[in-house]
């Protein structure tokens, strides 16, 4: 396999992507995690450029780094707790084990046939994993893929319906996020707390009634 400039760039970008991703999932400082997430996104955008789909590289920078990362940083700022929380939870070791196992399984599967593993070396030539990539004669593409993609998004027999549904999804997500994260005015906050207190009191009454006279409560429920 020849080592070209693209191979070196790919190696560098993979190191950036995987290294910053590791930092993201193992650091205690959430702001640094958000910044490393941004670096990872840049690395992924570089990988898209290597795959000759520059449009999606720019879209990645615009959507992920320009919007989602900023959302993350705002959320990190707004939820800074007073107590330093532990970094990992109780099942962290198990999670790490599962991740590594999954990675090994996937790597074994996607290797091309030439590199696949022989389960029983010697007598029978059973191979583990290995997908014949021989069907991939890589053709060259021109820049018309963007036009094709755009045409498919408005073609009724292609992806028009998912496109419109995605637009509706974004609208709903926008409205929902704004409503959920809205800063409540003091009157609203008090009204909410009253409502919760009333419900809690009613629940308590119901518990007491169940302890003393369960039949009447269950009979009342059936109506």
């Amino acid at each position: 396999m020849t080592i070209t400039l693209q191979t070196i760039i790919f190696a560098l970008l993979s190191v950036v992507v995987l290294g910053s991703a590791l930092f993201v999932v193992t650091t205690r400082n959430l702001f640094h995690a958000a910044l490393m997430l941004i670096l990872s996104f840049f690395g992924v955008a570089g990988l898209y450029v290597l795959l000759e789909s520059g449009f999606f590289a720019v879209a990645q920078v615009l959507v992920y780094i320009g919007a989602i990362s900023i959302l993350f940083i705002f959320a990190v700022m707004l939820t800074r707790g007073m107590v330093a929380m532990p970094r990992v939870n109780a099942q962290a070791q198990l999670a790490a084990l599962v991740s590594v196992l999954l990675f090994v399984v996937i790597v074994v599967i996607v290797n091309p046939t030439a590199l696949s593993i022989k389960v029983l070396p010697g007598a029978s030539e059973r191979v583990l994993g290995g997908i014949p990539w021989q069907f991939t004669t890589v053709t060259t593409i021109t820049d018309s893929y963007i036009k094709q993609f755009g045409a498919s998004l408005v073609d009724g027999s292609a992806y028009l319906l998912p496109f419109l549904l995605a637009a509706v999804l974004l609208d709903i997500a926008l409205a929902g996020a704004v409503q959920v994260a809205r800063e409540r005015r003091p009157a609203e906050v008090l009204a909410e707390r009253e409502l919760m207190a009333a419900e809690a009191a009613e629940e308590q009454q119901r518990e007491q009634a169940l302890d003393t006279a369960p039949e009447t409560v269950l009979a009342a429920d059936h109506h």
Binding site: L35, I38, G54, F55, V58, A59, V61, L62, I65, G66, A67, S69, I70, I73, D143, I146
Partner: peptide
């Protein structure tokens, strides 16, 4: 001569937004 030059400019602009937060 990027074939996505226009979007590239806007995307780079959003990069400077992150720097302001930093």
């Amino acid at each position: 001569n990027l074939n996505v030059g226009v979007v590239f400019t806007i995307a780079i602009g959003s990069g400077s937004v992150v720097a302001i937060l930093m």
